[in-house]
Write a protein that binds this DNA or RNA. Structure first.
Lengths: 199, 199, 199, 199
DNA sequence: GATGAATGAGTTTTCATTCAT
DNA sequence: AATGAATGAAAACTCATTCAT
């Protein structure tokens, strides 16, 4: 497996740093090579082309992300708790790596349409976790039976993603994970007061 | 004279079409000029540079967007209704112009960081509408008094934006506005059943 | 005759100012038109093209130059005196019009080879004055009979031209005409002491 | 490998030829690259930009010029002889490289003001040689004690420069170095007969 | 005569990728 | 495996000139 060769990860980590610090369009292969401490040509022994670095970067980081998420998920037994964990964990993982947060929220979105489609494919694996939580919540009677899984998924992901992006754009100057509970509460109970009878 | 519309709008409309059909990075000035039916140089009589076309495009379209939104907003008198209108209108406006939807949801996001910051400035005017609705809802007692305006705003915008992007990525093959009511319901009451006592 | 139409001179004077203040390569036709207070298109009613403005500019100014030079030349009756007058007059005329000095010494030299050849043609009329002075000086026995007219001409013109250029490059901050006598003395008697026998 | 010379000199030599044969404004980087037998991009491994090629060209050639000049200067022991050498050598060096002569006398003068200022800086090193000769001549009593060093410098350089330029404009069709002695004689003794008493 | 909106040709530079060593 | 010198394709923008009014 490629991933075991040390230079592979060395280059990916270099890419994260270079992209975060210089921006997507200023992240030339030569800069990444220099940051990784290898020659330009060496990059191409480990990656097919530049796009492959970016996809691999996303794949590797997302893989670690999913792994950690799944690991902790085992400790929770209700969909409500799992959702709370998902949100908090999502925030913790991104606020724990400032470079990565910049790369995923701002820089990688500047990539070509084609690359973004591939990134979306990888993202699906992550969104599956959400789907499972929602489905479980419906089946367990925690969530309303009429809940549209796809919409709920877009709502959760759209909300956390927008929240992280706003945080990154504001130079990451406030604490992200502490927003998790409020967001969870809003997703579960909405903006209104508790008694639906008001309506 | 072929066109009575001033060339300014002619070029902006051409840019929307060219970007939607060719992608951001394949939208050369010469292509836009050709689509607009003017010479390359003419572009520069109306726009400072290529970036200026894109910013102007966003400004003009967003301006029309805000105007229409505010116009209809007058007919609604509760925050709940206004929110429902906002969501539906947002969907209607974007599903009513397929090219523009592709441009705003996919292509313009590939722009340089600097350009995206300018776009965000323009977007703030739009998000202000949301803020006003939320504040009004809290003051009128429709929304819970503990509602964090910023979070609620991110939640609404994150949700509708993610929903539209997913729709565009799926080649706009289903009806977007009909999702509005479900989303509104979820935002107001959350995923759970009505009785908070369960919790 | 074109030259009598007021706009012709208006445009030429505008060109001198614009070129002196902006440099040759930043002296666009539109800038000259604006400075002259006419529309861009109007330029082309009086001049064939941009190059024609520059040639005409040089022709007109050089014509005035030659006229004034010849006028005063009548008052001198020895070649030595005429040469002294030539040098002083050359300096006076150029130090009397700071814009023109910049244009002739620095900016017009940046023009295309072709234009410079045309300028050289016009310059010949001016250099003829020099030739006449030298020939007269030889015939009158004031200058050595072995004097090579062509070389002497190049020496005089090369010296005064280099002197003016240096003065312009030093921002015209010292008095140019007061150098005339020293230069004249050097041209007539050279660097050495008076007694040729030393050699 | 065709050439053993480092590409740096290869490109500079190519630039001299291309500029001489096509003129300053028709000397595109691609033409220079082709003449040098390298790819366009290779130019930018050795030079920052096009202007850098031109400055480097002038620096290198002027450096060689100064070096040769200084070398031979050692063999002469009077200022008069040194001046004679300077003039002859200046003519020899330029008439020995027809392309270079065209470039320095005609083409490089069309460059932007900014570039010309840089060229002038480099030229100062050359003019220093002249200054030293003049100062030495005054101190040794060869030249008159009232001689203004700056004026004398402008006179010498103005004269030789104008002479070379005229020669280039006349398609280099006569022998330049053979003019050296006459010019030297004129600079030392002037246009007049030897006996200053005439005056 | 006068206007000025419109035209469109033309060139430097960057950077992902290759391949001889 | 590793290197890094060399490659070459690709696009925004300026400005002299025209011509319909």
């Amino acid at each position: 497996m490629k991933q075991k060769r040390p230079k592979y990860m060395q280059i990916i980590d270099a890419a994260v740093i270079v992209i975060a610090e210089n921006g997507y369009h200023q992240a030339q292969v030569s800069k990444i090579a220099k940051q990784a401490g290898v020659a330009d040509g060496t990059i191409y022994l480990y990656f097919k082309n530049k796009e492959d670095i970016l996809i691999s970067l996303f794949k590797v980081k997302m893989g670690q992300f999913i792994e950690q998420m799944n690991e902790e998920m085992k400790t929770k037994h209700s969909a409500t708790e799992k959702l709370a964990l998902f949100i908090r964990k999502h925030f913790e993982l991104l606020s724990g790596d400032r470079h990565l947060a910049i790369v995923t929220q701002l820089e990688l979105r500047q990539s070509h349409r084609e690359l973004r489609l591939k990134i979306n494919e990888i993202l699906k694996g992550y969104l599956t976790i959400l789907e499972d939580i929602i489905t479980e919540g419906i089946e367990a009677g925690e969530f309303k039976s009429t809940l549209d899984v796809r919409l709920a998924k877009q709502m959760i992901f759209g909300t956390v993603d927008e929240t992280v992006t706003t945080w990154v754009m504001n130079d990451q100057k406030y604490d992200l994970p502490q927003l998790a509970d409020s967001i969870h509460e809003l997703l579960i109970h909405g903006f209104s007061h508790g008694n639906k009878e008001e309506k």
